[in-house]
C-alpha cells in the first residue's frame, strides 16, 4: 500500500509518499530527514500523550501530565482511560511519576507542574 503524509520535521511540510511494498521507500521529500520521518511514521508512528488528572486542591482541580516518552499512536486512546480514576494528593512536583509503565511500555505518565497545596 502507498501512504501519503505531510512531513513535520521542518516548516516546509513536504508531501511524502511511502510505499509499504517496496521496503517503505519514501518519495516527495526534499531532504534526508524526510526519509527517516516517512519510514518511522509508517512502520511505527509514536506520539507524546498529554492530558490531565484529578487533584485534591482547591486552587487547581486538575494536574497536567504527559508520557515521558512517545508511545505508539494506536495506544493513545487506551492510555487515556488509565487517567480516569486517578486522584492525586498535593504536594505534586513537576516530574513526579503519576502512573508507571504505561500499558507495559517503558514510559511513565509524569506530572508537568507543581501543585503544592
Amino acid at each position: 500500500m502507498v501512504k501519503e503524509l505531510i512531513c513535520i520535521v521542518c516548516p516546509q511540510g513536504c508531501h511524502l509518499t511511502v510505499d509499504e511494498e517496496k521496503d517503505c521507500q519514501v518519495s516527495g521529500n526534499r531532504c534526508a530527514r524526510g526519509v527517516a520521518y516517512g519510514k518511522s511514521e509508517v512502520m511505527n508512528p509514536t506520539r507524546i500523550l498529554t492530558s490531565t488528572v484529578c487533584v485534591r486542591s482547591a486552587l487547581h482541580p486538575r494536574c497536567p501530565v504527559k508520557t515521558d516518552r512517545p508511545i505508539p499512536k494506536k495506544d493513545l486512546l487506551r492510555a487515556m482511560t488509565l487517567l480516569d480514576d486517578m486522584v492525586l494528593v498535593p504536594p505534586v512536583r513537576r516530574g513526579d511519576v503519576v502512573i508507571a509503565k504505561v500499558l507495559g511500555h517503558s514510559c511513565d505518565f509524569v506530572a508537568t507542574r507543581d501543585i503544592l497545596e
Binding site: I48, T50, S51, T52, P64, K66, R94, T112, R113, D114
Partner: peptide, 25 residues
C-alpha cells in the same frame, strides 16, 4: 502556558520538547 498542557514548547530555546506548564515552570 499554564493551560497549554500539550508538548512542543522550548525546542528552540531550551533544546528539548516541553509542555506549556513545564516551560512556565
Amino acid at each position: 502556558l499554564n493551560q497549554c498542557i500539550h508538548n512542543g514548547f522550548g525546542l528552540h530555546y531550551f533544546g528539548e520538547e516541553l509542555t506549556g506548564p513545564e516551560y512556565a515552570g
